[in-house]
Design a binder for these strands. Sequence first.
DNA 1: CCTCGTATGATTGTATACAATTATACGAGG
DNA 2: CCTCGTATAATTGTATACAATCATACGAGG
Lengths: 227, 227
Amino acid sequence: MNEYDVKNEVTDKYSLRGRVYHKIRDDILSGKYKENEELREITIGNELGVSRTPVREAFRQLELEGLIQIVPNKGAYVTGITVKDVQDIYQMRSLLEGLCAKWATEHITKEQIEELEENVYLSEFHADKGHTEQLAELDNRFHEILYEACNSKMLEHQLRDYHEYVLRVRKKTLAKDKRSHDSNHEHKDILEAIKEHDPEKAERFANRHILNAYDNMVKNGLYEAYQ
Amino acid sequence: MNEYDVKNEVTDKYSLRGRVYHKIRDDILSGKYKENEELREITIGNELGVSRTPVREAFRQLELEGLIQIVPNKGAYVTGITVKDVQDIYQMRSLLEGLCAKWATEHITKEQIEELEENVYLSEFHADKGHTEQLAELDNRFHEILYEACNSKMLEHQLRDYHEYVLRVRKKTLAKDKRSHDSNHEHKDILEAIKEHDPEKAERFANRHILNAYDNMVKNGLYEAYQ
DNA sequence: CCTCGTATGATTGTATACAATTATACGAGG
DNA sequence: CCTCGTATAATTGTATACAATCATACGAGG
């Protein structure tokens, strides 16, 4: 985790705006707010015990993300996230995670490779034991290392965004024992390709990895909440 | 242009926040604000004749885009955009524009195809005449149609973002007569693949199109402003 | 009964006041 | 001379007051 994110985390934790932002975001992603529902600044402010100012700032961010739509002088309306949105993001992520793995192959450090190796090793252990919480954390970290290693601020930023977007869905997916072993194996493949300095191979494995995660999700009907 | 964007345009035109947001954004992208420069709410507010409130809201959006970094209780610092950022975005765009063309092939309407045909035809004319303004507009529109046709809110949103990002650079690139003809030809190739209902072919052509645009930009050293 | 205009209330847009936090300067103590 | 702590100034964070805008209700006029 780099400096940028540490600071963002601080913001989110300690500022009202950050808390409001995440609260609304979660409520939209979790389906608490329905499509086209109108969000009133004062109502949400009262619910969270803050004034309109932090709520407004949170609205502006959510608008930019496309989660709500603001009509001037009128109101904020939930855009929400559909099954198709999740599906599309997985397709887009597949391509970009591939690019990330490719670039990471060319820029990764010794230390990062070692952390990936440790990560893969530990994941195997926790998968055997069925420790879903730790698995989710390790999976996060595996991808996070690649994001850092790809040496592209833009790609890193983008993939983190998508990653967060599908985090809820992904966590459920990994809860399935079978998938967690497959996922580990795919991580191992990506790591091997990186160690062999074969960027194209790493790209293909990473592509496949995301698509497999998506297929598994569909097969298990684990994204019904997003209808 | 869909309903969503019409409304956003209204926002940007008539609200102080929208104007402030675009002003700062342009100033960062054009290099007026240097890397790591501190942006003070009150200073910018005074410059634009508005209070801190709209400035703050604009800051929040810029932070989410990664153009500035906000340190709590301290200040906002310009992250800026480097040559490498532009380069990376072109690589990412290449993949996503490919995906967009692929999906567009599967969902495009008769009317959209007709508009593309008209677009390509008109572009040839303006390229001959050296009408750079119209060419830029037509090029925008060509990609815009594909974004609409791809039938994915997420991908559409993302590509519009990137497109805006590199707009300044791209406009300069098209000013070169040679490139504008090549670009038109590539547009024609994409359109033909779509008409043949060959998604993979459309994807490859779109991939190539963006990479060519990038290569041309590098070759002409047209992105020096972003050093 | 319908249409249009106006009045009224609700909501967002903006400005500003005040609180909290941070950085800096400066002096006491060692 | 250096270190540490405190006071002060500057800046952001938040709340609130007021302005502008929009939606609705209602009544006059046809």
